[in-house]
Nucleic acid binder design. Structure first.
Lengths: 386, 386
DNA sequence: GTTAAAATGTTCCCGCAGAAAACATATACC
DNA sequence: GGTATATGTTTTCTGCGGGAACATTTTAAC
């Protein structure tokens, strides 16, 4: 009740909130239904009626419209054994998809991901040198053609790219991706031209968290801190009250550059004692069979988590990549240190967990980002044959 | 365009979003209008029409309803010199108010704040020892009676308390307010019983930022980090994409306990090198005429700001209390250090500013919190004669 | 001073969205 | 096979905003 108001965005200020009309209502309800079957898997009409609080007749009309838009199908109900007329099952259509691109230092990957989160097809190319934006766009075009041949009849909502680096708030410009060597590139335009599709570009850690939130270890949790250790450093992202932390310019969540040791080593970013320098892949490899060294690294991780906890008070801290691996081998130590350092009353421990999705995480997360527009306005976003 | 989707909360997941009905539309539009005149000051009907995009006739009906609810009044238009029929001016009514309570170590204060942000009346009592919750509630009752006599005809939406300590996400329980010695107190119930009003309880730093956002130095900015130095330590709060950072349990934004020196002193919270220990009021006092010592403290502040920037990427960092004072005397040093440490591309500097509201900040912020329910549903929240 | 133009308020009617009720249908249970 | 139960379907109703026509109030032009 009151809690929602505690964090609620108050509409106006400089700009007055747009007025709402009847068609907003319709859009909102279509969005609620499509979103529900997107995340919740197949749901019966009856469940949708109960969950939304809308009338049976209204649900009927909405589902019909979603079906006419080609977004969902209705199956005969599974035998439930319950009394009463069986309810039709509403499923998102698997031929509705998004393209997801992940250019990285050693490979480029493109996948087609269905609206139910399934990866339908993927193409991967290893590269010797980090790809240029043009390389990435060219690969995307070729891979998309192959996938189009493989999966006939796919209807695509757009494409999204998960880039390891800073992406501006416009979801278009790669401001600085040091490991790729991209700086100030309007990759959205490049990719959109190559694919002739609407494109959004985002930070890879953000998309990783998005995927885990939608279909992985953070399902249903709405306050999450995410830390992912990879060859290109530590990527961070946060979900705050059900919304992705973005920041004013799009650079929020860079927890890899949180200062964790004031007398630490110089980081590639120019500062000292950054988490991603104190706790990097090489140090972890070097400590692989050195118990004491592993303990030190685990303590560093715990200190970082404690710091993030007092800033974000998350319900869940999600660890991926080599940080997840470190957590696996030093779970007791990390948990204990975090509890010891925890600012909160000790009874209320914070959950720490490993990521659940494997190698498809970024593809799924990027696709999620591409689907966002459709989920928000199912009748307003056109689907394109791939 | 795409930016909104980048952070947008996707409705469903475990719980499907409630369906929307026509009366939601009405509620939304009433809310938009009341919110607009609340923050934007008096506005003409014509301006409301333009800003909301709603029809003239609709605005007419909505304003009439708000007037009938006793929330706004319409004045004759000021002479504008423009051609055409003059538009009526819509103002929030000043006799609509909220009570705001601030119990602190050395004093208790209660104020009546009008919906336009004006502090109509206040009562303050100095105390020798920190007040108990019962003391605070008793004072609130007495002060409220006095104010009721002073301001006849006031209609009150409720009361809010700004407490220096951890407040649970239920907006009721003071989990731990170390300086007051309150632990696990349901202060909402206590105060609601004393005042016979709906009550919300919140953290003082959160309410301080809320006030600055509504009427102070953070107006119209929707990504803000707030640091306030006071006798009871450093309070922190953040506004993330137009929403107050709250955290899973309500303990988010405790930036005073961010680790800023790994070999620092032990903090009262049990950890080492917390910002509020490394940069506390005594150290600042002691450094008052010691340039080198001030430089060190300013550098500490800059390091904290840089750390928060890479986590939140705020549009504005707002400094209050002794941190504001320190910033005033070492502005150049802090700005330079922050720019040097900034993770973002150097061209995009982050604004740092002092708080603008004075001693009324917490009263205004708490009142804002109390008004939130009314602003969200103008027709659904009853007003009570004080 | 009268008239025209412009901007806004007001009134009335329309279309759209969801609610509610009546009816139809499909299952389980007896 | 009959009944209770749950759900889908159809029809009717209400509420809300849009839009057009009209009324009102001002400035500007002559």
């Amino acid at each position: 009740m009151g809690d929602d108001l505690a964090s609620a965005a108050v509409p106006a200020h400089t700009s007055v909130a747009r007025g709402s009309r009847n068609d907003n209502t319709r859009r909102h309800n279509l969005s609620s239904l499509l979103t529900a079957v997107h995340y919740g898997g197949p749901l019966t009409r009856a469940q949708l009626t109960r969950d939304t609080g809308l009338n049976r007749s209204t649900i009927g009309g909405l589902v019909t419209e979603l079906a006419q838009l080609g977004l969902v199908v209705e199956d005969a109900a599974a035998e439930t054994g319950a009394v009463g007329r069986p309810s039709l099952i509403v499923r998102p259509r698997r031929d509705v998809a998004a393209l997801a691109l992940h250019p990285d230092v050693d490979a480029i990957e493109l996948g087609a991901v269905a609206i139910d989160g399934t990866v339908l097809a993927r193409r991967r190319a290893s590269v010797d040198a980090p790809p240029t934006p043009q390389d990435a766009a060219a690969f995307a075009w070729e891979a998309a053609r192959e996938i189009a041949d493989e999966l006939a009849g796919l209807r695509v909502v757009g494409a999204a790219a998960a880039v390891p680096g800073l992406v501006a708030v416009d979801s278009a410009t790669v401001v600085d991706a040091p490991h790729l060597g991209w700086r100030g590139v309007d990759f959205r335009e490049l990719l959109a031209e190559a694919l002739t599709l609407p494109v959004v570009v985002g930070n890879d850690a953000n998309m990783g968290l998005r995927a885990e939130w939608s279909f992985g270890a953070a399902r249903g949790v709405d306050t999450v801190v995410y830390l992912n250790g990879s060859a290109s450093g530590i990527g961070g992202a946060a979900l705050v009250g059900g919304r992705m932390l973005r920041g004013g310019r799009g650079y929020g969540g860079e927890f890899g550059h949180m200062m964790i040791r004031s007398d630490g080593d110089r980081c590639s970013c120019g500062r000292f004692g950054c988490l991603e320098t104190e706790l990097n892949a090489e140090r972890l490899d070097a400590a692989a069979h050195d118990d004491a060294a592993l303990d030190v690294l685990a303590a560093t991780l715990a200190a970082a988590i404690a710091n993030l906890e007092c800033a974000f008070d998350p319900d869940l801290v999600l660890l991926g990549g080599y940080l997840g691996a470190l957590y696996d081998v030093r779970r007791g130590l990390v948990d204990a240190r975090v509890a010891e350092l925890a600012f909160r009353p000790e009874a209320e421990d914070v959950a720490i967990a490993r990521t659940a999705l494997g190698g498809n995480r970024l593809l799924i997360g990027a696709a999620e980002r591409a689907f966002a527009a459709l989920l928000q306005d199912p009748a307003g976003v056109p689907l394109v044959a791939l």
